[in-house]
Simulated scan of single mutants.
Amino acid sequence: MRESVDKVNRRGRQDPADDEVLELVHQVMHQFRSQLFQALRQGEHELTHMESKVLGFYAHRPGATQSDLVQHTGRDKAQLARLIKGLRERGLLHGEADAADRRNVRLQLTPEGQAIQQALRQQAKALEAQAVLGLAEEEKAQLLALLRRVQGNLNA
């Protein structure tokens, strides 16, 4: 009986490292994104974080609609409409009316939008390489496995 009580009591106590793990994951991702978008802002195109996310969405889903983006992001429809309008005015997104339902506009990146998206991806790849510099293949595999377990715990 004593052993089962001890297990229950230990489970109720939080290890101080529990809080630190997710805080560090958050800080690493914030630092990564900050450096990535700092490079973008210093380039010839000034993009906000959300603008880059919108471009990324349409890069992976050419022909998707604004409604598809709203559903994917869960963001406010009006906010996304303003973002899309701005990206279209800057020549980064192009829209065509849907042949089946002319009320829907199918959006895709323009060649300039594709170039920006490619530059963002190259910058991200360089930062990804920098982030894991010096880690052995086994260490990368272990880190991935541990993070997948954390993700699984949150999904349970």
Rank of each mutant, 00 (worst) to 15 (best):
H30Y: 10
I116S: 05
F37L: 13
L133N: 13
V5I: 15
E128V: 07
E44Q: 15
N104Q: 15
K77A: 15
V132D: 08
H26R: 15
E137F: 07
L22N: 09
E112V: 02
R121A: 15
V70M: 07
Y58K: 13
E89Y: 05
Q117M: 08
L107N: 01
A100F: 02
T73Y: 10
L22W: 05
S52N: 11
H26D: 13
A100D: 04
M1N: 08
G86Y: 00
Q66V: 03
R41F: 06
E44T: 02
L146M: 07
A115Q: 12
E112M: 11
A126S: 04
V150A: 08
A97P: 04
R121I: 02
A64M: 13
V21G: 11
Q66C: 01
R149C: 05
A141S: 13
Q27S: 02
Q142D: 12
K85V: 00
A39P: 01
L120R: 15
E23A: 13
F57Y: 15
A78I: 01
L69S: 04
S67M: 12
A156I: 10
K53A: 10
Q66R: 14
R149L: 09
A115D: 09
E46G: 04
Q71G: 08
P62T: 15
L87F: 05
G56A: 11
L36Q: 09
K77P: 01
R33Y: 13
I116W: 06
E128D: 12
G63I: 05
H72D: 10
E23S: 10
E3P: 01
S67W: 07
Q31A: 04
Q118K: 13
H49T: 09
L133M: 06
V28Q: 10
I116M: 03
Q130D: 15
Q142S: 14
L80Y: 02
Q122I: 03
K53H: 11
R11T: 07
Y58T: 03
Q42Y: 04
L135C: 04
L143K: 14
A141K: 15
P16A: 08
D98G: 06
L69A: 00
D19W: 05
K85Q: 10
R41W: 03
R75E: 14
L135T: 01
G113L: 09
R106G: 06
Q108V: 02
Q79G: 07
E89S: 15
L83W: 02
D18W: 00
I84W: 00
A126H: 06
F32G: 01
L107W: 11
G86F: 02
H30N: 12
A115C: 03
Q114K: 15
L83Q: 05
S52T: 07
R75G: 03
L133G: 07
R2S: 06
A115R: 14
Q71P: 02
D19C: 05
G86V: 00
A39R: 14
V8Y: 10
A126N: 12
L146P: 01
M50G: 04
D19M: 06
N9S: 14
V21H: 01
A64N: 11
D19H: 03
G152N: 11
K125F: 03
I84V: 14
R90P: 00
L154F: 07
E51A: 10
E137V: 09
K53G: 12
L80D: 04
M50C: 07
Q151C: 10
L92K: 07
R103E: 07
K125A: 15
V70C: 10
L109T: 05
